[in-house]
Design a protein around this nucleic acid. Structure first.
Lengths: 203, 203
DNA sequence: TGGAATTACTAAACGACGTTCAGTAACTTT
DNA sequence: AAAGTTACTGAACGTCGTTTAGTAATTCCA
């Protein structure tokens, strides 16, 4: 089956080539600056060719979102090896915020972009994101099991802490912090993270 | 000055007519479904006419954002009359979340839309939003002054609580809660709000 | 091996969008 | 009544995602 498998390989390579170009353009100009024609130009094919490998721009969006989810997972990975669940949870949160502030475009793509959310459950990016999320929830559950909190409602605890971290990053990413001088924003984020950690200790 | 003032009045009326149509279309189809041609069609003018009253779509966006900011202020208003600063703060937060969940489009416009954020400080919508925000911060400061918290860092407290509320609403508005069954989401939001209130009591 | 079938690709177009501009008709001024 | 100003529009431009009809190259099968 030489030919068939070579064809398949070439197809995968082409998808990879397209996605790579999309990735580069995205990093340079953000998702708004990413369009089919610019991808085509960069890989020196016609725009119509893109559609032979990706159904539409949404499919490309999902593929790109997978990359973002992988980058996020890799960023959070160091926390996974921390034994103590509370220490792990804190470091997890710190790295989550750190990722969002360092890679606003990727965070945007993952959580802030208005995207075709129908059927996203079937997408790889969702599966990967859910794996990371599950690990987070399990860490909170481990804290509860080890009696780090008085409360035992691990689901609400996990959600509440996530809301804070997500809100913090979102306000940065979408530039809704103009009432604070730019040079104070980073410090404020750090203080707020420290505060929510303190608050969580009293849960 | 009869003619000049009539002209001015007519100009203002026309701006109002355009904005009204934009408002309606926005409520029906969201910001994505709002375009110049649909506004023009609704008010029975040519698309080019719109540009005689609004410089570009961004200016219309700001005008619409002002409406959203006004709606938000009105929604939060009942909290303002509560005497006790802590009670006022809690009700303020509850109404904030309530507004976001009831009017996701408006919340989106205010806090989630990637918009021309340069020079927004000069826009009316920003001024109005800042007034509401200041009232919120002052309420936190009043809590601090009345020793409702051990911490005296009112700026960080205000910011931290805002992060939670904003994160909570944002996850709803941008549909990033698909891992929770739809019927549980409202309950989770309520529980999380109750939890952050409890946590704040220990600050 | 040669003709048929399939594949890989593209030029050109479609329709929707924001926006601009030249031109026209109505109104205002003198 | 002529000149100047204002309000408005049809038609176009350039951008976008996407589709279609066609062409050249490759693969299949007799």
């Amino acid at each position: 089956m030489g030919i068939a498998s070579r064809k398949e390989r070439e197809k995968a390579e082409m998808r990879r080539l397209i996605l790579g170009a999309a990735h580069d353009i995205f990093k340079e100009n953000g998702y708004d600056g990413l369009n089919i024609r610019s991808i085509a130009e960069r890989i020196e094919y016609s725009p119509a060719t893109i559609y032979l490998y990706y159904k539409d721009k949404n499919e490309l969006f999902f593929a790109l979102q997978y990359e973002a989810a992988a980058a996020k997972r890799d960023h959070l990975l160091p926390a996974a090896s921390i034994e103590d669940p509370w220490q792990r949870l804190v470091e997890f949160g710190r790295l989550y915020v750190d990722f969002g502030l360092k890679h606003p475009d990727w965070y945007d793509l993952l959580f802030l972009t208005r995207a075709p959310m129908e059927h996203i459950e079937n997408q790889d990016c969702w599966t990967l994101g859910m794996a990371t999320h599950s690990f987070y929830v399990e860490t909170v559950e481990a804290c509860v099991a080890a009696r780090y909190f008085k409360s035992t409602d691990s689901a609400t605890i996990a959600y509440t802490l996530w809301c804070h971290a997500h809100g913090l990053v979102s306000l940065f990413v979408r530039e809704r912090m103009r009432m604070y001088p730019p040079e104070e924003r980073g410090e404020l984020a750090r203080k707020s993270f420290a505060m929510i950690v303190k608050m969580a200790e009293s849960l």
